[in-house]
């Protein structure tokens, strides 16, 4: 029987504690949504109580609205999908005025993903978002591969990563999560750079850059030619990277990449994730995050595990 925030009782005895800490904040359970797959929460509220989520992570915001890339923007690939949405979003101001009031009404942690084209834009966006009421954490996107050449450097050049994270760190007292790109040689090094620059947590992985070709027309299947691969196809890569980062940093690691079921999520937690995010799974079924949450509870109950802390990083090697 459930009695509120992530605590489960059998009779009068506390049996399972699903709550997790991410830096300064506590989530009632480890299930989050991945940015870009959950809109601003409103569409999903039609299908379930989004207040049950550990955290809602909204679609990435920039200072000004962005119209995104020309279509076709998505193509399905084996057990995955490629997207080149191009960071289409309504802009920070419109989000605060029109979407945040709705999110504030729900008993969940609100994480706002944001990005900029320059360090100044990152800082300005972080300042504006930090002054709004009802945002509990910021997630910096330094890893989206959909921008013109020269931009993805924020997530792939350690010196630039340190600089931008440092700048944002100084401009916000909110919990700061840095979302890492998998398109690097050594992701553990990037996690360390983010930690040293003041991040409260790292989240990974963003999409893996990919490409698909229509062999009849010999044209790329996305108008933008390249896109970001997500879905179950990338999960083993994500689990490996979460494990590497967990071993490299002291701050919490938020794991994501192809999580559709609770079993997938538990894999990440065992590999070291403090929390997990459901991404493309939300597109497979709008109930994916709830299926994952209920499945984690069942797994813990079946395995006699009392808390996420007990499970996190419990990988047995050798």
């Amino acid at each position: 029987m459930q009695r509120g925030a992530g605590l489960f009782f059998k009779g009068d005895n506390l049996v399972i504690d699903l709550s997790v800490s991410i830096g300064k904040i506590k989530l009632k359970n480890p299930v989050m949504t991945a940015s870009g797959t959950f809109g601003y929460g409103d569409e999903f509220a039609e299908y379930f109580d989004i207040g049950r989520l550990g955290a809602v992570v909204v679609k990435g915001l920039s200072l000004k609205p962005k119209q995104g890339n020309p279509p076709p923007r998505i193509v399905e690939t084996p057990a995955g999908m490629l997207n080149s949405i191009g960071l289409q979003n309504i802009g920070a101001e419109k989000f605060i005025n029109e979407k945040l009031p709705f999110l504030r009404k729900h008993d969940t942690t609100v994480v706002v993903n944001f990005f900029g084209d320059t360090i100044e834009e990152y800082v300005e966006a972080a300042e504006i978002l930090s002054s709004a009421d009802g945002i509990h954490a910021l997630e910096m996107n330094i890893s989206c591969p959909n921008k013109e050449e020269g931009w993805s450097i924020f997530g792939t050049d350690p010196k630039v990563t340190a600089k931008v994270v440092n700048a944002v760190r100084k401009s916000t007292s909110l919990n700061l999560i840095v979302k890492l790109s998998p398109n690097v040689t050594d992701i553990a090094q990037m996690a360390k750079v983010a930690e040293d620059a003041g991040a409260d947590a790292v989240s990974l992985i963003n999409t893996i850059t990919g490409m698909a070709v229509d062999i009849k027309t010999r044209r790329p299947r996305l108008a933008n030619i390249k896109g970001g691969l997500s879905g179950p196809a990338i999960r083993p890569v994500a689990v490996r990277m979460v494990w590497e980062c967990y071993n490299a940093v002291k701050i919490p690691v938020i794991g994501m990449g192809g999580i559709v079921t609770a079993d997938d999520a538990v894999e990440f937690i065992i590999a070291g994730a403090s929390a997990i995010a459901v991404g493309t799974g939300n597109f497979v079924t709008p109930l994916a995050s709830m299926n994952v949450l209920e499945g984690i509870e069942k797994y813990m109950s079946d395995e006699g595990i009392n808390s996420i802390d007990e499970l996190r990083g419990s990988l047995i090697c050798g």
């Binding site: 870009g36 797959t37 959950f38 809109g39 569409e43 999903f44 039609e46 679609k59 995104g68 020309p70 279509p71 076709p72 923007r73 998505i74 193509v75 399905e76 999908m81 997207n83 949405i85 289409q88 493309t280 939300n282 597109f283 709008p286």
Partner: peptide
């Protein structure tokens, strides 16, 4: 008709100009 991932307005994959 467009390719779409979610059908409920969140993926922004099915846009038309």
């Amino acid at each position: 008709e467009e390719s779409m991932a979610c059908g409920i307005g969140t993926c922004l994959g099915c846009v038309v100009k």
